[in-house]
Every structure is written in structure tokens, then in C-alpha cells.
């Protein structure tokens, strides 16, 4: 068992080393990313002056939050169908459709959706232009799968007798869902939301295919600048990413542990 602990340490070092280096060199005065000259925060100022980057960020933020909301609704419905409904005609195809996007290579999803949009435009005149809306549709489509995985495992673990009790007391299926099921699976829905949000914020390949002129998401802007070579500005951006994620995830982990009785938290709300 000693060996596995060593591997764990090695694995964590491997996972975090590049990020640590990225953060350190974001404070480097020199343009050369590998040679340390002196401490400076000038790249952060450069970052906030970059209008393209900021516009890309705002666009990505908008798409990501709308994607997360829609995929949480569809994903929860899909989980409910898969876990609670049992067999229905077309169920095999449905379960395949919900799981396959998890592993589908991005280039295939992106290209096929673009061809769909172009073809539909010729047939029915919609979508007339590609941009934020088409990116949103593409993102919702692959995020549904991830939300479904998170929510359906929670749905399966939950105690079914609560729903039965509510039904015995005369509540209809809709009422049971909104008063019993939904509150119980809420934590899973929230992590599904966050997962969809980050996946959408992160996607370069699919967005590049289905986007149109003028709609450049943050990853698209980063990609075009990274292609030109290593830039300390990107390091600064990465550092902001890392810090935001560190704070938010540690906070949510701390909250989850504090309020869940299973992990020894007191559950006190004071």
C-alpha cells in the first residue's frame, strides 16, 4: 500500500506542477516565459486592456450560464426517464443518445452540427446566421450527457420510500417530483450545473465549428494568441482562472462538508 501512496504523490505533482509554473511566471517581467527577470504585475494590466479577450470572456460567460441552465433542465428530465420510467418504446436509442456525447470526439460533434445548421438554413431558412445561439445549442447538446450522469447516479441512490409515502398520502406525480424528488437531488443538479458551465466555458473545438463571424468565445481568442507563441498574458489569465477555481471549489467543498451530517459536520446553521 506504500507504493500507491507514492504514486498518488507523484500523480498530484504531475497534475499541479505545470499550473504552479504557469502562476509563477505570470509575475515575470520578461516577455520570455522561461527566463525569470523580476517580479511584475504588468501582464495583468495588459490583460485588462485587451478588448478582444474581455469581449470573448463576456460572450463565453453568457453562453456558459445559459448552457448550464438548459442542460440541467433536459439532463434532469433525461435522468428521471432513464432511472424511473423503466422500458418504453425507443428507450435503447434514447439511452444511447444521452451517453454517447460523453465520449464523442469534439471534431465530429462540431463538424456534424455545423453541417446540420447549414443544411437546415437551406431547407427551412433557420438558423439564418451562426453565432452565440448556435454555440449555445451545440453546448447544451453535449452538456446534457454530463448532467445526466451526475443526476441519474444521485437519483438511483435516493430513498424511493419517501416518494411512495407522498403518493400514498395522495400527492400526484408532478407534486411528488417538485416537493420530494427535486429537493433531494438538488445538490446533484447544482454540481451538474457547475459542470456544464465549466465545460461550456472551456470548449474550443465545437465552438470554432459552429460559430460565425464576429462571435469569438474566450477559448477561441486564447487559441489564436497561443498559436502565435507563448505569451505571459495568457499566464496571467490562467492565474486568474486558477485562483477563482481554487476559491470557489474550496468554499463549496467546505460548505458541503460542514452541512452534511455524513462526514461528521455538525450541520449547525449558526
Amino acid at each position: 500500500m506504500k507504493l500507491t501512496k507514492i504514486m498518488l504523490g507523484f500523480g498530484f505533482a504531475f497534475l499541479y506542477f505545470p499550473l504552479v509554473i504557469l502562476v509563477i511566471y505570470s509575475f515575470n517581467e520578461s516577455r520570455l516565459v522561461t527566463v525569470w527577470s523580476e517580479f511584475s504585475v504588468k501582464w495583468y494590466f495588459e490583460l485588462f486592456k485587451d478588448e478582444q479577450l474581455i469581449n470573448g470572456f463576456l460572450l463565453s460567460l453568457r453562453i456558459a450560464s445559459l448552457t448550464a441552465c438548459a442542460s440541467v433542465v433536459f439532463g434532469t428530465m433525461a435522468s428521471y426517464i432513464l432511472v424511473k420510467f423503466g422500458r418504453f418504446p425507443g428507450q435503447t436509442i434514447f439511452s444511447g443518445l444521452t451517453v454517447a456525447p460523453l465520449v464523442m470526439p469534439d471534431v465530429i460533434t462540431g463538424l456534424s452540427l455545423l453541417l446540420l445548421f447549414v443544411g437546415l438554413n437551406e431547407l427551412i431558412g433557420w438558423p439564418s446566421a451562426r453565432g452565440a445561439t448556435t454555440i449555445w445549442i451545440a453546448h447544451v447538446t453535449f452538456c446534457i450527457a454530463f448532467v445526466t450522469v451526475v443526476v441519474s447516479s444521485r437519483l438511483r441512490e435516493m430513498d424511493g420510500s419517501l416518494e411512495e409515502a407522498a403518493m400514498d398520502l395522495g400527492a400526484g406525480p408532478v407534486k411528488v417530483f417538485f416537493y420530494i424528488t427535486l429537493p433531494i437531488i438538488m445538490p446533484a443538479i447544482m454540481s451538474g450545473w457547475l459542470l456544464a458551465f465549466t465545460l461550456s466555458l472551456d470548449d474550443l473545438v465545437i465552438a470554432s465549428f459552429v460559430s460565425g463571424p464576429g462571435a469569438s468565445t474566450l477559448p477561441m481568442v486564447i487559441y489564436s494568441s497561443v498559436r502565435l507563441g507563448v505569451s505571459p498574458k495568457i499566464n496571467a489569465l490562467a492565474t486568474i482562472f486558477v485562483v477563482c477555481i481554487l476559491i470557489s471549489s474550496t468554499a463549496s467543498w467546505w460548505l458541503a462538508n460542514r452541512f452534511s451530517p455524513a462526514s461528521g459536520g455538525t450541520g449547525k446553521t449558526t
Binding site: F12, L15, I21, P219, V242, S249, W253, N257
Partner: peptide, 24 residues
């Protein structure tokens, strides 16, 4: 759960940026 958080944490930062980090 904390260890799992450590495993997942890097993948919540941008994939593009994490790959970019290896160039340097």
C-alpha cells in the same frame, strides 16, 4: 472527498491553458 477535489480541480481550469502550460 478532499483528495477527489484535488484530482478534479485542475480539470476545472481551461483545458487549452493546461495544454499550453506544457509548451513552456
Amino acid at each position: 472527498s478532499f483528495m477527489l477535489l484535488l484530482v478534479i480541480l485542475p480539470s476545472w481550469t481551461s483545458f487549452l491553458i493546461r495544454i499550453y502550460a506544457w509548451i513552456g
